[in-house]
């Protein structure tokens, strides 16, 4: 998985490419821990994300909880396969998906 960050003031965009699974989600979790401080707007670009498992969902949920306190978080360009997973797990109601 590749993580690309684009920061603009207190706005941060993270582009994920590849698979967000048990093996890779710790990377994202570590990345967020260091870069989410002082951020009021967090955007995930899932255009190139092919795969997500419950380990990835867990990281997203944790990030959502943090951002609920300091601003907002949204996810963009979700592929249908991943959208289905968000549907099944009820994450569509928790996350702001555009």
């Amino acid at each position: 998985m590749t993580i690309t960050k684009n920061q603009n003031g207190d706005k941060l965009t993270i582009v994920l490419e590849g698979r967000l699974d048990t093996t890779t989600s710790p990377q994202l979790e570590a990345e967020l821990r260091t870069s989410v401080n002082g951020i009021s707007g967090l955007t995930f670009d899932f255009e190139k994300l092919d795969y997500i498992s419950s380990a990835g969902l867990r990281v997203l949920l944790a990030a959502q909880k943090v951002m609920n306190k300091q601003g907002e978080m949204k996810i963009t360009n979700v592929k249908p396969e991943i959208m289905e997973i968000f549907d099944v797990t009820g994450f569509v109601d928790i996350l702001s998906i555009e």
């Binding site: 498992s53 419950s54 949920l61 797990t89």
Partner: peptide, 22 residues
């Protein structure tokens, strides 16, 4: 319970549920 809000949702416990559903 997938109807809970983000704050109320426990982290984890989703994996088996996802398998069952798919």
């Amino acid at each position: 319970d997938i109807t809970l809000s983000a704050e109320e949702r426990p982290i984890g416990g989703l994996g088996i549920f996802m398998v069952k559903k798919s």
